[in-house]
């Protein structure tokens, strides 16, 4: 079996004295979509911030492509730039849509910026709004721009933090389709955070459940929903868990 893209061991994240995440072991494999599900406040977004190296764990090791980036080491820029995140509430720069999509490419001094921006905007169906200010877009459009700006970077790993929360069914459909395409065409490794178990079932290869900061179980999507080992997973998957 190939080396995992990520391997987390005994990762703990605390804010002050409060422990918000505890992952004994987690692997993310190349080319897969791993969904992390769980109620609000269960540590899903914290986990993504650690995977994007935006924050360091309090303790434990995060191996990325076999190299350890734990609590005491800084992450080289070229490694950080192999990962990006689409956030639940996308914040765009006060510039045009195309400038927003081009921003990450310009940071990398990437060639063919214009072509890549146009390609990304076409994929999300917003090429017609390229010159419009980011601040004038609707929530769904802004989320599609955020996806386009992440997509244009062609990173090895794409982290998605509730990318369809608060969106209408049309935009949910558009974004889910783009996620599928990216995963199939470019074999982009993805970690999708969602509280929507149906979405996890539709998109993911494997699913993990986070509860109160603890990673309860990770399993293939079929097994996760049909025959989970932990009773809490069963309760969550059936929608019986009140939160």
């Amino acid at each position: 079996m190939s080396q995992p893209v990520y391997r987390l061991d005994n990762v703990i994240k605390r804010y002050d004295l409060r422990e918000v995440l505890h992952v004994d072991a987690l692997e993310v494999h190349a080319g897969e979509i791993l969904a992390l599900v769980g109620p609000s406040g269960s540590g899903k977004s914290t986990c993504l911030r650690l995977l994007n190296f935006l924050e360091a764990p309090t303790s434990g090791t995060i191996r990325f492509d076999g190299r350890n980036y734990g609590s005491n080491g800084s992450v080289p820029l070229d490694v950080r730039r192999r990962v990006t995140t689409v956030f639940q509430r996308p914040l765009l720069l006060n510039r045009s849509v195309q400038a927003n999509v081009a921003y990450g490419l310009r940071l990398r001094r990437a060639p063919d910026t214009r072509a890549r921006v146009e390609d990304a905007l076409s994929r999300v169906g917003l090429l017609g709004l390229a010159r419009q200010k980011g601040s004038t877009l609707s929530g769904g459009e802004a989320q599609r721009v955020a996806l386009a700006r992440a997509m244009a970077l062609e990173t090895d790993v794409l982290l998605l933090d509730e990318p369809t929360a608060n969106l209408d069914p049309y935009n949910v459909g558009v974004i889910e389709e783009i996620i599928r395409e990216l995963n199939v065409e470019r074999a982009t490794t993805m970690v999708l955070v969602t509280h929507n178990v149906f979405q996890a079932r539709r998109l993911a290869h494997r699913v993990g459940l986070l509860l109160d900061g603890e990673l309860v179980e990770v399993a293939d999507v079929e097994r996760f929903f049909a025959a989970p080992t932990d009773p809490r997973t069963l309760a969550f998957a059936r929608g019986e868990m009140v939160y």
Partner: peptide, 26 residues
């Protein structure tokens, strides 16, 4: 400036200096 914007800029691969510049431009 919205505090989360900084994190989103960093997630796009900005260095601390590039992040600070982007925030100043905002």
């Amino acid at each position: 400036v919205e505090p989360h914007l900084r994190q989103q800029i960093q997630a796009l691969g900005a260095t601390p200096m590039q992040t600070a510049w982007a925030v100043l431009v905002e």
